[in-house]
Design a protein around this nucleic acid. Sequence first.
DNA 1: GATATTTAGTACCAATTGGTACAGAACTAA
DNA 2: TTAGTTCTGTACCAATTGGTACTAAATATC
Lengths: 196, 196
Amino acid sequence: MKKNIGRPKAFDEQEALKIAMHYFWEHGYDKSSLSGLLEAMNIKKSSFYQTFKSKEHIFRLSLELYAKMSYEYMQGLKKEMGAKGVLLHIVYETISELRETGKVKGCLLANSSSECFSNHPHFNELISYKFKTFRKLFKELIEEAQNEGEIKNTLPSSTLGSIYQSLINGLVQMIQLGASKEELNAVIKHIEELLT
Amino acid sequence: MKKNIGRPKAFDEQEALKIAMHYFWEHGYDKSSLSGLLEAMNIKKSSFYQTFKSKEHIFRLSLELYAKMSYEYMQGLKKEMGAKGVLLHIVYETISELRETGKVKGCLLANSSSECFSNHPHFNELISYKFKTFRKLFKELIEEAQNEGEIKNTLPSSTLGSIYQSLINGLVQMIQLGASKEELNAVIKHIEELLT
DNA sequence: GATATTTAGTACCAATTGGTACAGAACTAA
DNA sequence: TTAGTTCTGTACCAATTGGTACTAAATATC
């Protein structure tokens, strides 16, 4: 349905969306001002509204893009390091990020959930819907690792998945709350043992 | 140093601060507009600035009040239900809140940490400092419960405390992310077993 | 009662917010 | 070349933000 008629766009739509997503990821929804987004995306207001309709709309697109990219990223990791490897890698990656940058971005969906839960409840449905993908993926990874003997823990994969998620989310929070290296290591060790 | 000279205040300073704290707790820092705060506190702008100096200042006061009130609340609970009882009560209370109100406020310090971590880093120091109180309290409660045989788990109390905290924070996040009752129960059961 | 002191209420401020209107530029198809 | 279409840049908008200035009201001390 694409017509080559009319003045062509001077920017890549997908690329711009990707930039917006990272901007939202770093600043959150409310603190991502339109002017900030425009500057980062390097486009002008009229182009923005023509292409992305509104701030709310591009945020929704960003959430979807994040979910899709993360999913593909983890699937790629799985081929590289196996199911259990992915689950552990996510933990270690978080710590690396902390060591290298001094902070941690966390999960865009989890962050948005905290921010929007009471202030922008109209986003809740999309956020929790998109997050279901992750829950399912974690469960499948654990199941696969159990079947292949990487994980001996016989708890149901769904149970283990929930605990894993809770610990991962909690870990990011603890980092932001200024927990010490020892405190973080305690949690990491607990995760490792859970997945043994 | 209090002089009874001049026009007396028409509102209770402590009471107003308490209201502000609850307002911040429910809306977060950025989404707590001055007008919203004033309406809730039922005072006028000039009184606000005269008494509380600025929005930033009253937020700091709110964080401190929250830490103090929570600490006293938990100390009170301990007398009523013992050390282990407190730790479990916090979990059950969260679930009750979810059942009764359909949502969950979480911990003001943890919420503020998420919100302010990258957007208002000048709050980080105060937040993580105040949170240390909780970390210490959790550790002490666990230690006490271990000494009295309420908890058989022989992991160091500091380790157990970190894991507990991570799980509690993660639990709140999972609620906001729309986790199912079963998924939450999996986490709760895990906490209960950890404290056995 | 006069005066010093403090509080309360209102009007105002510049800056920023997300969003729209419109003129002109750049392209395709005829 | 011209008409039709789409994109870009700028100017503008009302609403809201946190914060200040100033006047009026209420009290204690003298």
